[in-house]
């Protein structure tokens, strides 16, 4: 499993993703600078890391989507390559139109950095196949603009197509208003595209993938990807890759 981590100006979780992929999972990973185009065939996974690309100026992710590397990401997505956008990476995927909806400032207008509980919405994806559907996991969030918005039709579609990967929930897996840290529609914390090869999520699995950090719930996400790519996952092959 060879990964590309796209470095935008202002990315700041690029090193964290690199660390987890290379040190924790022991898989090859490379940084790709936003000014470079790349060939999708060279990588199995493309990560759009968190941070503040272009300072979040104008709108989070709005400027980054025009970088040359994103052209390659769009092509790779079309070919069914796995693409994971975390936090600012999720925002970029939304702005680029690879995922539906948009991101707004958190409901209370504050940056939120703390652990949240997530209910796994679907295990039927290359990113979540090692989780159980409905399983509750804990991950940190750290964002000021994680308030997911989409019109009702889109939300209904996401639900009916089983494309909501994670919901903000309480410890017991109840998807409640109180457990919603930022005001996201339907408590959505992460969604898949139609082809299920693109995942965008606000919580940071790379920040909870080692016991020394007190929580390794996020490691399963990366291991799921490895399982899938190595053909061991129960979900089989998706899309046209």
């Amino acid at each position: 499993m060879k990964s590309a981590i796209i470095v935008f100006p202002g990315s700041n979780c690029d090193g964290d993703c690199f660390h987890v992929l290379s040190e924790v999972l022991g898989q090859p990973a490379e940084y790709v600078f936003h000014k470079e185009k790349f060939s999708a065939g060279d990588f199995d996974l493309i990560v759009l890391p968190g941070g503040f690309s272009y300072g979040d100026y104008l709108r989070a992710g709005a400027i980054a989507r025009f970088s040359p590397a994103m052209e390659s990401v769009l092509k790779a997505a079309e070919r069914g390559k796995l693409i994971l956008g975390i936090c600012n990476g999720f925002q970029i995927l939304l702005e680029a139109g690879l995922l539906p909806g948009a991101m707004m400032k958190n409901r209370d207008l504050k940056f939120h950095c703390h652990d949240v509980y997530l209910k796994v919405g679907t295990a039927d994806s290359p990113f979540t196949n090692l989780y159980l559907p409905g399983e509750v996991v804990k991950m940190p969030v750290a964002h000021g603009q994680g308030n997911y918005y989409a019109d009702e039709d889109t939300i209904e579609r996401l639900k009916s197509e089983n494309r909501i990967a994670f919901y903000y929930s309480d410890e017991k897996g109840r998807v409640t208003e109180k457990a919603n840290p930022n005001g996201s529609a339907a408590n959505i914390a992460g969604i898949l595209n139609e082809g299920r090869n693109v995942l965008g999520m606000m919580p940071h699995p790379e920040r909870c993938a080692e016991e020394i950090l007190g929580n390794a719930d996020g490691k399963k996400l990366f291991k799921s990807i490895l399982e899938y790519l190595e053909g061991r996952s129960k979900i089989g092959k998706i899309g046209r890759s």
Binding site: R59, I63, Y149, A150
Partner: peptide
């Protein structure tokens, strides 16, 4: 193209 996000 850039200044407004048509979704919202």
């Amino acid at each position: 193209k850039l200044l407004a996000n048509p979704v919202l």
